[in-house]
Design a protein around this nucleic acid. Structure first.
Lengths: 113, 113
DNA sequence: AATTGACTTGACAGAATTTGTCAAATATAA
DNA sequence: TTATATTTGACAAATTCTGTCAAGTCAATT
């Protein structure tokens, strides 16, 4: 994932939001799921916030550990993947902002000498 | 692309089939497009057969060289990318598309104020 | 049959991205 | 403050992606 795209879209994660909700409702700690999946809590945190994407096996393990509907979670996870691909194509906005940013910077440098 | 998935899905390529059709109708050689894009003909061949995927810039250059509709080709290219992800998870496909569709709709409504 | 031209195939190396670990930072509550 | 939970970012290792190359197939000509 490029940084520019991440900055706009990382906050939306159908999957991540759902598992966080499930986890918190059950009063389970993030690091407890992490332990169950044998990964660092940092990664689990990133899954929940949509900053990184788990693989199919991890989704299944999460479902099992949370006693949640595996199919529901896999579906949300797939939706995220598709949505990300689509979102990347809407990223002309980012390019535009980059140009503006560059221009502003040049302007600033020109005037502060 | 994993090998197992490639073996199943590499034959379907909306984008590849279309540019081969366009190219052949104009009597252009594969290696001529390759030269224009400054890549090896082998890669161009793989693009046309859907074995590898070009990046956005390459799609644009192909469109320009073939004097084809850039938007059409970018769309087919995007369709291939989405279709590939979905193909990996066939059974969950429909539900996932529904979620994306709903989110896109919400996004649109949010932004048209 | 041998040659030619167009494309295809697969192995390969280097580049780029992704993965998980770790330590430090932050946040929240007691 | 102290303790506990989560987040952040830098990092190395693993994996995937890229394009090059040489050898291969296939069809049409000679």
């Amino acid at each position: 994932m490029t940084n520019s795209v991440k900055s706009i879209f990382s906050q939306l994660s159908n999957f991540g939001q759902r598992i966080r909700e499930l986890r918190e409702n059950k009063g389970i700690l993030l690091r407890q799921i992490a332990a169950a999946l044998e990964i660092d809590p940092a990664i689990m945190s990133k899954f929940e916030r949509g900053e990184r994407k788990p693989n199919r096996e991890q989704v299944k393990r999460i479902a099992r550990f949370l006693k949640a509907d595996e199919n529901e979670l896999l579906t949300l996870w797939l939706a995220d993947k598709v949505q990300f691909i689509i979102s990347e194509e809407m990223s002309l906005a980012e390019e535009a902002l980059e140009i503006v940013k560059r221009n502003i910077k040049d302007e600033t440098q020109t005037h502060t000498d």
